[in-house]
């Protein structure tokens, strides 16, 4: 790269601007509207999963905080959006905001525990949180519908104009817009001084206090933001499918999003999106051929990626794209 070694401002600005590749990538996400109009429901679910992966990337990829129970916040957002619409408030945008606020609130409460632990203890705590909420939703069937799922979710048309139709046109447009807006926030955040502090925590947890940093305050903050974004993703799913099943809180969902992020490449912001596309399309294709065994192929893919591309698919790709003059930071 052509960085002038003696201009500090240039060094720290490198890779922060929008690259051509990024713009092409986002424009390409509009292609399903014309190329695969019968797959827009799937596209919408991919966008939602991608957003969920971005929320995990903020804590795992940037701050190095492992979570095995991130579905807790996804499910919280989904149930919140579902329940308020069932209670008669079917306007989607305010639904999103309320779902995000509640997920953020619970995330903030949890963050006081999260910020004190690392590694194995963190895996156990987040796993426990996920299981806890899953069982709570299961047993509170008077509220959540339990294992039968939440029925009777009715969402009003977006801007009172665009109905959530069967083809998923509105759903995909809505989910994609949600993904893009949240992505813009996440992108700004990781390019900020706060983003640098998060990378500092990831790179060396013990050094941070020695430069006067309050790592726990940083972690509480990013965990709250991450929970809010996961809540938005869950709310998008509830609103676009007009149903909420217990699965939104399942361990499977927490594990899937972790796989997606590692597959795509953690700590790169786009990794979660690329991972979600590959994972969801693969699942759609494989499960059509052989529904029982599709995890076999995912298992194989995961092992191959971790061995051959330790920084995920995007990590491998970025080595190539640097040669084209673009970066995927």
């Amino acid at each position: 790269m052509s960085i002038q070694a003696n201009n500090p401002h240039q060094i720290l600005s490198a890779g922060l601007g929008w690259t051509r590749l990024e713009i092409i990538f986002w424009l390409a996400l509009l292609l399903p509207f014309v190329l695969t109009p019968s797959y827009l429901s799937l596209a919408s679910q991919i966008a939602i999963t991608a957003l969920f992966a971005v929320s995990l990337d903020l804590i795992l990829g940037y701050a190095g905080i492992v979570s095995m129970g991130h579905a807790a916040f996804f499910g919280l957002g989904a149930y919140t959006a579902g329940l308020i619409s069932k209670a008669g408030w079917g306007e989607p945008l305010t639904g999103l905001v309320i779902a995000a606020a509640l997920a953020a609130l619970v995330g903030y409460g949890m963050s006081f525990i999260i910020a004190r632990f690392r590694h194995l203890a963190l895996i156990m705590i987040t796993l426990g949180l996920g299981l806890l909420l899953h069982e709570a939703a299961n047993s509170a069937s008077w509220l959540t519908g339990g294992a039968d799922g939440l029925q009777g979710v009715k969402i009003r048309p977006l801007f009172e104009t665009f109905k959530f139709d069967l083809y998923g046109t509105t759903a995909y447009a809505y989910s994609l817009a949600g993904l893009f807006l949240m992505f813009l926030i996440a992108r700004r955040l990781i390019h900020s001084p706060f983003g640098l502090a998060l990378r500092g925590i990831r790179e060396n947890w013990t050094r941070m206090p020695a430069i006067g940093a309050d790592s726990q305050a940083h972690i509480r903050k990013i965990y709250t933001v991450s929970a809010a974004i996961a809540g938005v993703a869950g709310a998008l799913l509830a609103q676009t499918t007009e149903t909420v099943s217990l699965e939104v809180l399942s361990f499977q969902r927490s594990a899937d999003v972790l796989v997606i992020l590692i597959l795509g490449g953690a700590g790169r912001l786009y990794g979660g999106i690329i991972g979600a596309i590959i994972y969801m399309v693969a699942r759609d294709q494989f499960s059509g051929v052989n529904p029982q065994y599709w995890y076999f192929w995912i298992g194989l893919l995961l092992i191959a990626v971790v061995i051959l591309l330790p920084n995920g698919i995007l990590g491998g790709l970025s080595r190539l794209t640097v040669r084209w003059g673009g970066t995927w930071r």
Binding site: H9, L12, S13, L16, R188, L189, H191, S192, P193, F194, G195, L196, A197, I211, G212, A213, A217, H218, K221
Partner: peptide, 15 residues
């Protein structure tokens, strides 16, 4: 940034 207490700013770019 940590010394200045500006390391929590997330809405402005680092440069």
């Amino acid at each position: 940034l940590e010394r200045e207490g500006t390391s929590g700013i997330w809405w402005r770019r680092l440069p």
